[in-house]
Simulated scan of single mutants.
Amino acid sequence: MASSSPAPPSESKKPRGKMADWFRKVLSKKSKKMPTSAESTPSDVSQPSSQDDPPRMGLSSAVSSTPPPPPEGTTSNAGSSSSSSSSRRWSKDYDVCVCHSEEDLVAAQELVSYLEGSSASLRCFLQLRDATPGGAIVSELCQALSNSHCRVLLITPGFLRDQWCKYQMLQALTEAPGAEGRTIPLLAGLARTAYPAELRYMYFVDGRGPDGGFCQVKDAVMRYLQTLS
């Protein structure tokens, strides 16, 4: 009995290598026909950041925060301005130096009493009251003029006759040569034509008023003191 030999492979079957190539071609054609989804690569997906990347600022951190209050012990601008004004006023011994003749001592005392007793509590220098006993008259006067913010010249007929008063007037003008409000002439008992020529460029206070011009003198001193701020 003759042995049967295995049948040769059918020619219709494809080799394995060709089958794999054919299968890959079919898959590639299907992938090309499939539409790409817009959701496949969303733009808002956060990517992992490396540790070296700086952290992103959120909305709350982008808005500037309110600066912290100043540390204790610091003063505001208003407080420092007020302190500066006060220190400049107290840098001199007197607010007003009253220059007068000996025969007008009573009128000068009344003026000083008014200025010191007012709500402003102005510090006044009156020579016969405040000069240092034993001190040189000229030195005491020059020191008082330089240590006073303002000078009031009580100009009367006695003032114009006294050479010492004329020296006081010239010394006061030397300390404050311009019309700065520091030298305040108070004209009392004199006509305007008798006003000293050295003071013609300055306005004077007319002492013929009910209070002798004392209130106007006080207001003039206070206006100057306010300029120190």
Rank of each mutant, 00 (worst) to 15 (best):
M1P: 09
M1I: 12
S3I: 15
S4W: 11
P8T: 11
S10K: 08
E11F: 11
K13V: 13
K13F: 04
R16E: 15
R16H: 13
K18H: 12
M19N: 11
A20R: 15
A20D: 14
F23I: 10
K29N: 10
S31G: 05
S31E: 09
K32G: 01
M34K: 01
P35D: 12
S37T: 15
A38Y: 12
S40K: 05
S40R: 03
V45L: 08
V45A: 14
P48H: 04
S49G: 07
S49E: 13
Q51R: 13
Q51D: 12
D52K: 10
D53A: 12
P54M: 04
M57L: 12
A62R: 15
P69Y: 03
P70G: 10
P71H: 08
E72K: 14
T74F: 07
T74H: 08
N77L: 01
S83A: 11
S83K: 06
S84H: 01
S86E: 15
S87K: 14
S91K: 15
Y94C: 09
C97E: 11
V98A: 05
V98S: 09
H100S: 05
E103A: 09
E103G: 06
V106M: 02
A107V: 00
A108K: 06
A108W: 03
A108V: 02
Q109M: 07
L111V: 04
V112P: 00
S113W: 00
Y114W: 06
G117H: 01
G117E: 05
S119H: 03
A120F: 05
S121Y: 05
L122K: 02
F125C: 02
Q127W: 07
L128W: 07
L128E: 02
L128R: 12
D130T: 00
A131E: 01
T132P: 00
T132Y: 00
G134S: 01
G135S: 00
A136K: 00
I137S: 02
V138E: 01
V138A: 00
E140R: 04
Q143I: 10
A144I: 06
N147Q: 14
N147K: 02
S148F: 08
R151L: 08
R151F: 10
T156Y: 09
P157Y: 10
L160M: 13
R161D: 02
D162M: 07
C165I: 04
Y167F: 08
Q168C: 01
A179H: 07
E180L: 04
E180V: 02
G181T: 03
G181W: 03
G181S: 03
T183V: 15
I184W: 02
I184L: 07
I184G: 04
L187W: 05
L187G: 03
L187C: 14
A191E: 12
A191P: 15
R192Q: 11
Y195S: 14
Y195I: 12
P196D: 08
A197R: 13
A197K: 03
Y201T: 15
Y201I: 15
F204L: 03
R208K: 11
G209M: 07
G209W: 06
P210Q: 10
G212I: 07
G213M: 10
F214T: 05
Q216T: 14
K218V: 06
D219K: 11
A220I: 05
T227K: 06
S229H: 12
S229C: 14
